[in-house]
Design a binder for these strands. Structure first.
Lengths: 117, 117
DNA sequence: CCATTTGCTACACTTTTAGTAGCAAAGCTA
DNA sequence: TAGCTTTGCTACTAAAAGTGTAGCAAATGG
């Protein structure tokens, strides 16, 4: 993989020239499908092709890059059952989970706004 | 703006053909600098150029696109003091905030791993 | 007036992602 | 052991997104 593009704490990333951890995480999670992959893997180890399906046919190129990045970041790992979240990955998921509820609420307000014809 | 690219609940987005709210949010926040902008605006209305500076000279093209998207999504708005988070935006920030602490912890583990020479 | 600041658009360029094809390795199955 | 399937990719081309610089119109301030 192109190591230049691996978001690493202390190294310049998209969002912080000094590599502030929060910005590194934003860069990492901000890449396409990263959060979707984490979401899918929670309590649910999966194979490459299964992840691809779940992520609505994400191209293998992108999936492969994301997986390598997330493995290097210590958020996922390969097990006998396929790809799975590490403990750190599970912890991160727990922090992201409240977004699920919030987003449904947000979506409701959103449609109300658009209906004000 | 290219309305085709505005992530909207119920509409297909990168991540969900049925527009699942959580995936819509992922698409929205996943775009470059979106989370950085929200982070910066918390309790801190700001002008276009100030945001640009804070985001380490994000190009005006991208910033403008992000702002329009986030405004359409109801997360930020224009006030007399410049761009600012809406109530919904502030709520979202509160959910994202715990990531700050987690990420610092994560960064520590990260450097420990790389030092195992 | 004239100079600044602000919010942006245009444009050319680079990076990232998508989409398709296909192949090597591992695991059946007979 | 030959053939089929599944899995985890790589290669390649095209499209989309982001970058970086220049600069302009509107508002603000002397």
């Amino acid at each position: 993989m192109d190591l230049e593009s691996q978001p690493t704490p202390g190294q310049p990333v998209r969002g912080s020239k000094t590599g502030q951890p929060i910005m590194v995480i934003f860069d990492l999670l901000g890449r396409n499908w990263a959060m979707g992959i984490i979401w899918h893997l929670t309590n649910n180890p999966s194979t490459f092709r299964k992840i691809q399906e779940y992520c609505e046919n994400i191209s293998p190129t992108t999936l492969n890059k994301r997986l390598k990045e997330l493995i290097m970041a210590g958020l996922i790992e390969r097990t006998l059952n396929g790809y799975a979240l590490t403990n750190q990955g599970e912890e991160l998921f727990k922090l992201l989970q409240p977004l699920g509820k919030w987003s449904r609420n947000w979506a409701d307000h959103y449609s109300q706004k658009s209906n004000k014809t």
